[in-house]
């Protein structure tokens, strides 16, 4: 897993305590709203996202920048590459 610090996101989505698979549904929904090159931050407590979000990025051709672990929840950073 790639860890990052001090990433400045363009949009933040807080889905802490929302059940699986909201991390994928919200990710898809939010990415549609972003411009190419913009960064999305997703906050979640769901550990399945550790595997799912990088895999989703691979599959859709977006860049997984990395994650930050705040202790209580995770922050994932995704850069939109596709149009």
């Amino acid at each position: 897993m790639k860890f990052v610090e001090n990433v400045k996101p363009d949009v933040t989505t807080d889905i802490v305590y929302m059940m699986c698979p909201m991390h994928l549904l919200k990710l898809e929904e939010q990415m549609k709203e972003l411009e190419q090159g913009q960064i999305l931050e997703i906050m979640t407590d769901y550990d399945g996202a550790l595997e799912d979000i990088p895999a989703w990025c691979d599959k859709t051709g977006n860049e997984f920048l990395g994650m930050e672990d705040s202790g209580d929840f995770f922050k994932f950073y995704i850069k939109k590459l596709t149009r």
Binding site: I15, Y17, M18, M19, C20, P21, M22, L25
Partner: peptide, 8 residues
């Protein structure tokens, strides 16, 4: 359970 009510 599932994602009804935005997973809440």
């Amino acid at each position: 359970g599932g994602i009804q009510e935005t997973g809440r």
